[in-house]
């Protein structure tokens, strides 16, 4: 396995200390995004994308034509007033942009549908413990099965298009949360398995140079295979019909109200339908010959 992409905070010193890496840079604002992208390219690293962790709604962000060529993952707390979004729609449509909104608020679920209907690639950020699974299921069905033209909504599109009946599917990479694909560094270059762990100071190495091959590094391979422990523990998730595409991601919630189980079972069904559509016909149902 080659070395995963590196997610780092925007820090010129840190960038200069690396070379030949594929880098995603975290910034706080759009003006910083263009600057960070230029610095990554000048540093001898390749730019994967700029992650904008904005504190203000999407509508308030100063998006402009100058960022059109930068791959952007914009994480905003909300969409904001639609009338203000219309001013930045041409950039959102014309750029290489994916909008992430947390789906712990019903209005964000609606906003994701709205943005998608306008051709803007977006993504639902799951909020553990706060997710309204029924509303999310509606959004997922819209994302995958709606026939009216619309942009993909992740992670549903990724799951539906990547699902293979004979294998498990981990879709954490959509959120930069999968050590097979992304490792997170702090400003001092210390390595963590996820953004959350980096911010909590939970590191697996003092520098990226310590990790020669990701699949041979114990902490990474342990995390990649951690879902297997659910099987060994007889965890309720391991008996859930949605297990193959969830892999216990919401294990702390599972068993409380069963919301995630229902959602992922429905997601599986929708993914099968999509697969059948791709194969050129409708899915054969049990009552069909």
């Amino acid at each position: 396995m080659k070395l995963p992409k590196i997610v780092i905070p925007y820090n010129k010193t840190l960038l200069r200390s690396m070379s030949g890496q594929i880098v995603a840079v975290r910034v706080k604002s759009i003006p910083q995004a263009a600057e960070a992208a230029a610095h990554v390219r000048d540093s001898g690293n390749a730019l994967f994308c700029v992650i904008v962790e904005a504190n203000s709604p999407l509508a308030e962000l100063a998006l402009h034509d100058g960022i059109k060529d930068i791959p952007l993952a914009i994480m905003a707390p909300a969409m904001g007033k639609f009338r203000r979004v219309t001013a930045i729609l041409p950039v959102l449509r014309g750029g290489n942009i994916r909008i992430y909104l947390p789906c712990d608020r019903p209005d964000n679920i609606t906003s994701l549908r709205l943005l998608s209907s306008l051709g803007i690639h977006c993504c639902a950020l799951f909020a553990p413990g706060e997710t309204n699974w029924e509303e999310l299921a509606d959004l997922m069905t819209y994302a995958v099965l709606e026939r009216a033209p619309h942009a993909p909504i992740e992670p549903f599109e990724f799951i539906a298009s990547s699902y293979e009946p004979s294998s498990y599917l981990d879709w954490g990479r959509i959120f930069f949360d999968d050590p097979r694909h992304f490792l997170h560094l702090d400003a001092r270059g210390r390595v963590a398995l996820s953004r959350r762990e980096a911010s909590m100071g939970d590191f697996i190495a003092a520098g990226i140079a310590e990790i020669a091959a990701a699949d041979e590094f114990p902490a990474i391979s342990e995390r990649i295979n951690s879902w297997r422990y659910r099987l060994a523990e007889n965890h309720p998730c391991a008996f859930c019909a949605g297990w193959k595409i969830c892999l216990g991601r919401f294990a702390p919630e599972a068993g409380e109200d069963g919301g995630c189980a229902g959602f992922f079972q429905e997601m599986l069904d929708v993914a099968r339908q999509r697969g059948a559509q791709r194969a050129g016909g409708e899915e054969l149902r049990v009552w069909q010959p």
Binding site: R113, S117, A148, H150
Partner: peptide
């Protein structure tokens, strides 16, 4: 009229 319903109607009419 809610946003959800409006989006549904827009899709319905476009299709």
């Amino acid at each position: 009229m809610s946003w959800e319903n409006l989006i549904y109607i827009a899709d319905f009419l476009l299709m």
